[in-house]
C-alpha cells in the first residue's frame, strides 16, 4: 500500500524514481563523488594548499624537477613532484582544474542562454522565423569551435596589448566556445517547442489573450528545458575538452593562469627527457574529470528518456 501523499520534500526526494535509479547505478554514484571532490578541490584550492604555483615570487628554482614522493628523490612536501620552475604539480592541477571548470561551465551557460531562447522562438513560430534561425544554426555548425576560437583569439591578440589580452583571454575563450555550440541546444529546444505548441494547453492560453512572450516563458520553456539541460551536462565535458585542446595548442588561456590543457602542454616539453609526471598527472586529471561528467550526463539522459526506462 502506498502512503497518502503527505510526505515532506525530503521524503518525496528519497521516495523518487530518480533517487532510486541513482542509488542503483554504482558507476554514477562514484562519478558524482569524484566530480564533487574535484569541484571542491578546484574551488577551495587556496584553502587546501599553501602553494601558490602561479605567483612567480613564491617559487624556488632549487625545487625544480622533483619526482613524485614515491620515486627516488621525491619529497612528501611535493607529493606529485614539481615542474621546471619548482611549481608543485598537485597545487597546479588544483588551480588548473578551477580554470577548466570555470571555462566549461560558463561557456555552456552562454550556449544555453543563446540556444534555448532561439530554439523556443523558432519552434513556436515556425515558418520563415524558424527557417531563418535554423539556417543560421546550420551555418554556425559548419564552423568548428576551434576555428572560431582561433579567429577570435587572433583578432583580440593583435588588437589588444599583451597585458590586456591576458586579462581577457579567459572571457574570450568562454565566448568562443559558447558561440560555437549554441546550435545543438537550439535544435533540441526547437523540436520540443514544435511538439508542445500543438497541444491544447497552449491553445487554452492563447484563448485568454496571453501575450506570446508569456506563453513561451511560462508554458513552452518549462516543458522543453529538461532534455536540453541533460545534453548540457555532457556539453560541459565537451567544452572542457575544447578548452584543453585550445590551451594545448597555445591559443587558450595564458600560461600565467594555466588550465589543465596548458599544464599538459608545458609538461609535454619534458616528456622525452624523463620528467613524465609534469604532463601525466594533469592529463590523468583531465581524463577523470571529463569521464565523470560524461557518465553523469549519460545517466541523466537514460533516466529521463522514457523509452530507455
Amino acid at each position: 500500500m502506498r502512503k497518502e501523499q503527505t510526505l515532506t520534500w525530503w521524503g518525496r526526494f528519497v521516495d523518487h524514481d530518480v533517487t532510486y535509479s541513482f542509488l542503483h547505478s554504482p558507476v554514477t554514484v562514484i562519478a558524482s563523488i569524484v566530480t564533487v571532490l574535484m569541484i571542491i578541490a578546484a574551488f577551495c584550492a587556496p584553502v587546501l594548499t599553501s602553494y601558490t604555483p602561479f605567483v612567480p615570487g613564491s617559487l624556488n628554482l632549487l625545487d625544480a624537477f622533483m619526482p613524485p614522493a614515491w620515486e627516488p628523490g621525491g619529497v612528501s612536501e611535493h607529493f606529485l613532484g614539481t615542474d621546471g620552475q619548482g611549481r608543485d604539480i598537485l597545487a597546479a592541477i588544483m588551480y588548473g582544474t578551477q580554470v577548466s571548470l570555470t571555462v566549461g561551465l560558463l561557456s555552456v551557460l552562454l550556449s544555453i542562454a543563446i540556444g534555448i531562447p532561439l530554439g523556443i522562438i523558432a519552434g513556436y513560430n515556425g515558418g520563415w522565423v524558424d527557417t531563418a534561425i535554423m539556417r543560421i544554426a546550420d551555418i554556425q555548425l559548419t564552423i568548428p569551435p576551434i576555428l572560431i576560437a582561433l579567429m577570435i583569439d587572433g583578432v583580440t591578440r593583435t588588437s589588444l596589448s599583451s597585458e590586456v589580452h591576458e586579462l581577457v583571454a579567459i572571457p574570450v575563450l568562454i565566448v568562443s566556445i559558447g558561440l560555437a555550440s549554441w546550435p545543438q541546444y537550439a535544435r533540441i529546444t526547437r523540436s520540443g517547442a514544435m511538439v508542445e505548441r500543438r497541444k491544447d494547453y497552449i491553445a487554452a492560453a492563447q484563448l485568454i489573450q496571453t501575450p506570446t512572450a508569456l506563453i513561451l516563458l511560462r508554458h513552452i520553456f518549462p516543458n522543453v528545458v529538461g532534455p536540453t539541460l541533460i545534453v548540457a551536462t555532457i556539453g560541459v565535458a565537451v567544452a572542457i575538452i575544447i578548452e584543453a585542446t585550445l590551451s594545448f595548442l597555445g591559443v587558450g588561456v595564458p600560461p600565467t593562469t594555466p588550465s589543465l590543457g596548458t599544464l599538459i602542454r608545458i609538461g609535454n616539453n619534458f616528456l622525452f627527457s624523463g620528467e613524465w609526471w609534469i604532463t601525466l598527472f594533469p592529463a590523468f586529471t583531465l581524463v577523470v574529470l571529463v569521464l565523470s561528467v560524461n557518465l553523469i550526463g549519460d545517466w541523466l539522459r537514460d533516466t529521463f528518456n522514457p523509452k530507455l526506462r
Binding site: 491544447d200 491553445a203 487554452a204 485568454i208 489573450q209 516543458n223
Partner: peptide, 17 residues
Amino acid sequence: SRRMQMIFQSPYASLDP
C-alpha cells in the same frame, strides 16, 4: 474572450503538465 471559453477534447493535452 473572457465571456467565451473552450473545453478541449483531450484532457491529457489541455492541462500544462
